[in-house]
Amino acid sequence: MPSNGSRVGARVAKQAATAPLHARPRSAEDRLYLRSVGPAVSTKRRIARSRALVIYLLTAASVALALGGRIAVESLAMQQSRLSQQIYSASTTQAELELSVGKLSSPQRIVEYASTRLGLAFPAYLEVVPKTLNNPVPLPQSPPTSVSVPLPAGANVR
């Protein structure tokens, strides 16, 4: 009857024979070698993980930045729109006010007001009185007399 150790040995040998090449137990040298490169593999993983994290963070930051930028742009656009509307509204109000001033200062309205509300009228005779008394004595102008009226030019061709 085979000993327990030999049975284990046989099983291992059988597994080793049937196992895939890469899963087969390494030799002592190989194990030594694997032992020596083991920590390097771990670092690579860590680096890979860090890279993934960085990429993740960068992506998240980019998305956040894009979102933030979009929100800022939208906010500025709203502000601009609001200001434009305010300017537009202010300019239309200004136009309305100007119109009111124009109507109020129209000579037509003033004359109408003066005649209907104040009972004023244009003078029948208007004499010009210059502003200053230092003017030279006005030149004499003959008063209107009876006119010697000629026939119009157009009526003269017989």
Binding site: V128, P138, Q141, V147
Partner: peptide, 18 residues
């Protein structure tokens, strides 16, 4: 033209020569 015996004394303005 705006003086006496002329065609337009009605254009005259007292104090001014027209």
């Amino acid at each position: 033209v705006t003086g006496q015996n002329a065609t337009a004394p009605a254009a005259a303005i007292p104090g001014y020569v027209v």
